[in-house]
């Protein structure tokens, strides 16, 4: 069993990498959520040009491979536009966020569509402005439907962060490759075990994310029940949206 565990020093290197991965994930998630909300709502806009723009973005973001998008962002965009002010890390964040935004926009759109029409009609009857309607009536209800597929999507983005090692950003995967270089230099075998450990780390992080989203869901549903006195609608039916 001792063969499966790495040395303490190796775990420290992996931890350093993990912090970079988590920072990348956090930033990409924030930007991705903003993009999903903006384009998800834009896809339901009454203006045709806005819907068209959002559709182009969504088709682009869902159509392109995340790794090819990452390579384009890191290697082509800075040269093409002669713009390299923020460094590779931020370009990688943007690439991941664009990817997440495409899927997230579809989740947001689907969830808003799933809210009963009566809610919108009632808020129009109450003379709420479109912004108020979205902010106070539709989005809070849509949130319960958004969260489960958003959790899956976040795990997908976590998996996507491993790609940045290929463009030489020092994330968990890159730390692993550095360790391999060191091991090869010392002539020590055991690369397979190293990868098993890394896989387990990714698995644990994914489970933590999953748990956080479950927790958020439970909180949201509890609040919904408290306010309305109704049992929360099952969100099972929408959990497959993200795939």
């Amino acid at each position: 069993m001792g063969d499966w565990v790495l040395t303490w020093g190796q775990y420290q290197v992996l931890w350093e990498g993990l912090t970079v991965t988590l920072r990348l994930l956090g930033l990409a998630f924030l930007l991705g959520v903003v993009l999903s909300l903006v384009f998800g709502i834009a896809r339901l806009s009454p203006r045709t040009w806005m819907r068209g723009l959002a559709l182009v973005y969504v088709e682009f973001a869902r159509g392109i491979s995340s790794i090819i998008l990452l390579f384009i962002m890191v290697f082509a965009i800075p040269i093409l536009f002669d713009f390299d002010a923020f460094g590779r890390f931020s370009f990688a964040v943007v690439a991941l966020a664009i990817n997440m935004g495409g899927y997230g926009a579809e989740i947001v759109r689907g969830s808003i569509n799933a809210i009963p029409k009566g809610q919108t009609e009632a808020s129009i009857a109450l003379n709420l402005s479109p912004t108020q309607r979205l902010r106070h009536v539709v989005l809070p209800q849509a949130m319960r439907i958004i969260l489960p597929p958003m959790g899956n999507l976040t795990i997908e983005i976590l998996k996507g962060t491993a790609l940045v090692a290929l463009v030489a950003i020092g994330d968990l995967m890159q730390a692993t490759r550095n360790l391999i270089q060191a091991q090869l230099a010392e002539g020590v075998s055991g690369v397979t075990i190293l990868f098993v450990n890394v896989l387990v780390i990714y698995f644990i992080v994914a489970q933590i994310i999953n748990g956080l989203f479950r927790f958020g869901e439970a909180r949201l549903n509890a609040r919904f029940r408290q306010r309305t006195g109704r049992a929360a609608v099952s969100t099972e039916a929408y959990s497959e949206v993200s795939a």
Partner: peptide, 18 residues
Amino acid sequence: RSTPLLVQLFFLQALFRT
């Protein structure tokens, strides 16, 4: 499902090399 394909590919590669 919850681990990156990239790492899995590296893992498989290392496995078949050994």
